[in-house]
Nucleic acid binder design. Structure first.
Lengths: 222, 222
DNA sequence: ATTGTCGGTTAACGTCCGGTTAAGGCAACT
DNA sequence: AGTTGCCTTAACCGGACGTTAACCGACAAT
């Protein structure tokens, strides 16, 4: 289990990270809303601890964007705003819990455990670097970008991501998608080409690599 | 959606029941721990609002018994005990949230919705973006517009909304509506067509998407 | 330098899938 | 019996998708 902490007060953030670490909960950290969304695209967190007053993009907006995108990850708001309206705004945006500063660390931990244990019974999701494939949603993303893939494109990507970062032999790919009968199938070349165009074309760093005379692999650069 | 309220202060309990009713949330009521456990055995509630100071069996014990029995129903503790130890005891027993008296009704409602929304959406009302379906009234709306749907159209929409934003496979839809044997049923195409005409035709943004060679999904655009 | 292998790229084409429409049947209601 | 609403069936259409084949470039061996 791993959580994302979004908090711009450095001291508080450090304290929370430390306490979570004591409980054996790994924790990534963002100090603004934009960075939070980027990290969420890149990693499969189990829940989010979200401050509301944030630079660049406030917490409520971050939460709304996630919900609109169909993301159901549990979200705990963490803020000094204690009026009823603020709380309700947090829940309206799709938050799951709301904790007011100052709070006891032990209570935060308790709420984190309660929230993160629940939900997403099968968040079947494969991910390498900022390339992710949600098997429930049947949707692949590269960073913020939704990828429009054909059924075989998805199947191909799934095979590659399951093995990642190890390469998959052409024979194995053909077998997985076309069944045993797949002699000198040229189709694979074409599909790989389309997949590569969808994944890597507009990007800086290529993820889909070809291993000569063997097969293909999805792997982030060093 | 229906919740169980366990609270021995009669005035408070009545007020909560009224507020929940205003939100369209049906609510059963127990005034002691033993009765609560009995009701929980007999009815499939969506969540429990649980006072801690109760006659016959206190709330924490009720919660523990449920968890030991493997029951994962969300539990919201509602109590005047505001010390950190009390809260931690509540979470340790397997509680999901902890609200301290006195509280604002609106906050309770918000937390109830947040908690009950998670896990097995049995809600009497399903909603995605501005598309909503009231299962009691058997009526769907898109924004202000009432949708005139046939029985199968409603059933179809219900299946899709329950899974939203995840797609539902054609096989699953056929199974849900026609029963297991629904071979190469062409009807699905026609009904989807009618549903789409009702939902999306006069609108800017389409919500009903087709996932090729798999099924359909209701999902708001990014 | 020539040749062969391997992978990338592109275009053409045929098939399949989903969308659309119209007609027929069935049941409930008038 | 006639009407109405709803579901099903069937046929047709268009576009997306997959396959095939041809060509190109890189690289290694001869």
């Amino acid at each position: 289990m791993s959580v994302l902490l979004v908090e711009d007060e450095r001291n508080l953030a450090d304290a929370i990270v430390d306490y979570l670490a004591l409980e054996g909960i790994p924790c990534d950290y963002a100090d603004n809303g934009v960075m939070a969304l980027e990290l969420l695209c890149q990693h499969p967190y189990q829940m989010v601890i979200l401050d509301i007053n944030l630079p660049r993009l406030d917490g409520v907006t971050v939460c709304q964007r996630l919900r609109v995108a169909g993301e159901r990850i549990p979200i705990l708001f963490l803020t000094a705003k204690d009026t009823l309206e603020d709380k309700l705004a947090g829940f309206d945006a799709g938050g799951d819990d709301y904790l007011i500063k100052p709070f006891a660390m032990a209570e935060l931990i308790a709420r984190v455990k309660a929230l993160s244990g629940r939900l997403s019974p099968q968040a079947r999701r494969l991910q390498v670097a900022d390339l992710s494939l949600d098997l429930n949603l049947h949707q692949a993303r590269r960073g913020q970008r939704e990828l429009a893939l054909s059924p075989t494109g998805l199947a191909l990507l799934e095979q590659l991501l399951r093995a990642a970062p190890a390469p998959v032999s052409k024979a194995a790919l053909i077998d997985a998608i076309w069944g045993a009968e797949g002699d000198d199938n040229n189709s694979l070349k074409v599909h790989i080409h389309k997949l590569r165009k969808a994944i890597d074309r507009p990007e800086e760093v290529p993820l889909l690599r070809t291993i000569k005379s063997h097969g293909y692999a999805i792997k982030a650069p060093e």
